[in-house]
Write a protein that binds this DNA or RNA. Structure first.
Lengths: 390, 390
DNA sequence: TTGTACGCGTTATCAT
DNA sequence: ATGATAACGCGTACAA
């Protein structure tokens, strides 16, 4: 009966496979495969017989790994993260993004695999885990993982990444969002401004403007946007680089800034989470926000409206970002299956300045620095869309 | 040279495999495999040569699916969720749990795959996705997915699940935690109590005590714990079943409860998230918590201390729950690889009543119902550990 | 180092 | 229409 398998050991011993079931029913392996995967290829009577035999033998259905090999598809897509996958759940903004991805994929029956970009021993998830496509999120382009995953030539969508080589990507107008934030404090009349950037690599702490560059696309872009506008306004900001993007990571920033520029009146932070740390520190130090200090965050984290004062920030739509990334990837995977090339798409989502209660004119108003634009008086709308130009 | 492949088509056409590289270098497929996977099995000179050829050919390394089939291991573990995977990120308590799992797995080079238990078309992730082990989280035992994954005979850890068939499990003292919550309001003198349960299946809304059973282990246990204590105290609670475990899901509950029992003075909620909805509704309705209404949640969600008043709740350690589940699974997978049987372990984590500001004696105090225990006066500690007995 | 025999299904192709 | 045969997918383990 059997063509290939040599052990004729009978039922009950060892693993139950298609062949075991086929032998039991007295049909070919193919017929059993069809019974499970293409019901229309055989009579329902025979199919029932096969399924019944499978049931008796405790056969669970086609082995997913074998099927993945034979079909060339695994049923799951990966998300490659530069941070620990644990942070995907911890950070509210990231969580909303991933939640949106999961919500887009699961109705399509696609599982979501979280991949660390850190190698552990000799295994590198980005290289070694089987998947049908990858969303590369906010991942250090220098990292080996990013390169590994590119080389696998899987369908790929880059998110919050510089889009170099013609991949599909979803990005956010980080730079113009940051420009809007900076312009906002300039318009309010601030001239002593500090920036809190985010970087995974040294130098940390107060850095020279020249050596300040974020690690990762978003932090690079936001820093650039802030500095452009401030420079145009004749303001040279104090720049602090922090490694941890969280409320805890933002704590201590205020003190460090005030040490080098005691009369700072406005702080622009890489994220709302970090800004929250500043707000807490300010509160503890008896510094009133926004009366004595203005603070602007980024993201429009749900946190922003829970804080007191509510945080002025730059909104990005992470839900849409996730939905787009996932659906672009799904499309690319369909193209791949159909053997047609995927037209790379590069989408950039807008950002929007959301003015809340953490910003106000500086304490000693009326003396804006040379070159600063006058604050637009009167009823400025509480929300402004920066232009899409970077 | 080749034993199996029939097409002798040359380099550059089609997929690059071990064989392609082997042909290029003039060695066997095995040698190339060794070069990648067992460097010590060949001279480093030859290895370099092989790696160089692979580089030139754009060979990325062994195909993960093929390797998974050959090795019998995929490098990722699944988490099976009854809710949409999207909620894994949305719900703060679930997110902390998954974060802890991810933090435990990723240093070991293991990826985490989120699996919906809902079938979509003909694909059922629980049956069709390749993985080395599964954490079954809070999953309806009736669900096909739960059964599917059991039948695959993968290493398994059940979390927040009734532990029936000798699987390893991590559970929480839901019942005694709920008992402590109920005892707390009884001790305070409440006699008009309402419960907000969580269930995925009808009936929803106000239900009879007899027909009230949660869907899912945690909700069943919590409900049972509340009812036990209240019954002992001679109190028959109003029971409301809600389908959505979130702040939004908790909204509307207060109104529904007050319609059937206008003089309700205490509400015990399945989760802090739902309790938050009650607090918001109470605020909107001008009902003062805890003066007019006491509210107790469950979980000790970070949310609990952000609310005003801060929420009295029952703490569970979800981080430890995640760490334990992941490490037990890792152990079981190691056993499997080593061919030794796994001794199933059933761990139950303690819960702890945390008294904050959302509970107080009922407005018209001094008239506890017959059979109710007297509140313990004086300086009761703000935190009490219920006994482990259910 | 290399040959050989799988791992376990799937996608043709062929036969009845 | 149904079912069987053969080759294939891409590696890995183990013996030679």
């Amino acid at each position: 009966m059997r063509a290939v398998r040599l052990d004729e050991s009978e039922v009950g011993v060892g693993r139950v496979t298609l062949q075991t079931v086929a032998d039991r029913v007295g049909v070919s392996r193919m017929t059993v495969s069809n019974a499970f995967s293409r019901p229309d290829q055989l009579s329902s009577a025979l199919r029932d017989k096969v399924l019944k035999a499978a049931e008796e033998l405790g056969y669970t259905g086609p082995d997913p790994s074998a099927r993945a090999l034979a079909r060339g598809s695994t049923g799951s897509v990966g998300v490659l993260l530069s941070n620990s996958p644990a942070e995907a759940f911890t950070d509210e903004v990231a969580a909303a993004f991933f939640s949106s991805i999961a919500a887009t994929l699961s109705p399509r029956g696609i599982a979501l695999t979280l991949l660390s970009s850190e190698p552990s021993g000799d295994v590198m998830p980005a290289r070694d885990v089987a998947m049908d496509g990858v969303i590369v999120y906010n991942c250090d382009p220098e990292s080996g993982a990013r390169e590994q995953v590119e080389r696998r030539k899987l369908p790929l969508v880059l998110v919050d990444q510089p889009n170099t080589r013609g991949f599909s990507s979803v990005n956010v107008e980080d730079r113009s969002g940051a420009r809007a934030a900076a312009q906002h404090v300039v318009d309010l009349g601030h001239s002593r401004v500090a920036l809190i950037g985010k970087t995974g690599v040294p130098p940390f702490g107060i850095v020279e403007s020249s050596s300040a560059k974020g690690q990762g696309y978003a932090s690079t872009e936001r820093l650039a946007g802030w500095i452009e506008v401030l420079t145009e306004a004749g303001i040279e900001p104090v720049i602090l680089q922090e490694p941890i993007d969280s409320t805890a990571g933002g704590r201590g920033a205020l003190k460090a800034i005030l040490e080098v520029q005691p009369d700072t009146t406005a702080i622009l932070a890489f994220s709302d989470a970090m800004a929250a740390g500043v707000l807490l520190d300010a509160h503890d130090a008896g510094i009133s926000v926004p009366d004595q200090l203005s603070v602007v965050g980024f993201d429009d984290n749900p946190l922003a409206t829970r804080l007191r004062p509510q945080l002025t920030t730059v909104r990005q739509d992470v839900t849409e970002k996730g939905r787009l990334a996932a659906s672009m990837l799904v499309e690319a995977m369909a193209d791949r299956r159909a053997g047609r090339p995927t037209e790379p798409r590069a989408v950039t989502l807008t950002t929007e300045l959301v003015v809340r209660d953490s910003t106000a004119p500086p304490p000693r108003a009326g003396k804006p620095p040379e070159g600063a634009k006058r604050p637009q008086d009167g009823k400025r709308p509480r929300t402004r869309r920066p232009s899409a130009r970077a």
